[in-house]
């Protein structure tokens, strides 16, 4: 890159905290790959897909609550004994849990790192009122919905997995624990709000993954938004239905 002598207004600026490509390409490729924002977005999309898979399976399994306590508790129990005769009890469940934790970590880690980069990209904000045309509420609130859903998740684990946050927690009685938790109206409300936020997060994320992964074809591009909407709506309706069902006594 040759540029006429030092001329501050003519040379491209050095932006603090931004990518600084190294000449040595010796780093292992995942590290190299994750050093750019495009790479991080790709990783976010992949981990996003894994997390969406989890969210969907979790929602689908929980629908068993409408079949009654026996079915539901059997389902919960079966998760621990998946492939039991081959592996030790709980092995596969823990494998999946570790995988999920890893996905959460890289999803959130990438998001933090991208947010930092973007915060340095416009050090002086616009002084007039910006008018957004395309960036909808979901897109602009991803980092907030993401964090809220994350803290909700911690509570959710404390409530129904570990039992710390649930005074009536009984180990092994998943059905009873759910009912006990959702019978408190403020907890039910909290779950509903959190799941609506999750739905909003999925609405943008479910479309965004295609874009980040470069899955793009004019012929199918219309389907991408349709998929995101459908996915977000199904997951949200089902998840919101559980506390409502308890509150209205359909599940008790």
């Amino acid at each position: 890159m040759t540029q006429a002598t030092e001329r501050p207004g003519a040379e491209a600026p050095k932006v603090k905290g931004h990518h600084n490509p190294s000449d040595a390409k010796a780093k292992p490729w995942p590290v190299e790959f994750m050093s750019t924002a495009v790479g991080k977005k790709w990783i976010m999309a992949i981990s996003g897909i894994a997390l969406m898979g989890f969210v969907f399976a979790h929602m689908f399994g929980n629908l068993k609550i409408y079949l009654g306590p026996t079915d539901y508790n059997d389902y919960a129990h079966s998760l621990r004994t998946l492939l039991h005769p081959i592996f030790p009890n709980g092995f596969l469940l823990w494998l999946m849990r570790l995988g999920l934790i890893a996905m959460f970590l890289i999803h959130i880690g990438s998001a933090i790192s991208l947010t930092r980069m973007n915060q340095t990209s416009r050090p002086v904000k616009y002084q007039s009122q910006r008018r957004y045309l395309a960036a909808d509420f979901a897109a602009r609130t991803m980092r907030w919905t993401g964090w809220i859903v994350f803290f909700y998740l911690i509570y959710h684990l404390a409530d129904l997995t570990w039992g710390w946050a649930n005074p009536d927690f009984v180990y092994g009685d998943a059905y009873g624990n759910v009912v006990a938790s959702f019978e408190r109206w403020y907890i039910a409300l909290f779950y509903i709000v959190a799941n609506l936020l999750l739905g909003i997060h999925l609405y943008h994320g479910g479309w965004s993954i295609f874009q980040s992964l470069g899955v793009n074809s004019p012929r199918y591009n219309g389907i991408r938004r349709g998929f995101a909407v459908t996915f977000a709506v199904i997951v949200t309706i089902a998840n919101v239905s559980f506390p409502l069902a308890v509150q209205f006594g359909i599940v008790s």
């Binding site: 890159m1 040759t2 540029q3 006429a4 207004g9 003519a10």
Partner: peptide
């Protein structure tokens, strides 16, 4: 060529 260093650019000049 600017990248390769054979040409030096003087913009806004």
């Amino acid at each position: 060529q600017i990248h390769l260093g054979t040409v030096t650019l003087y913009n806004r000049t």
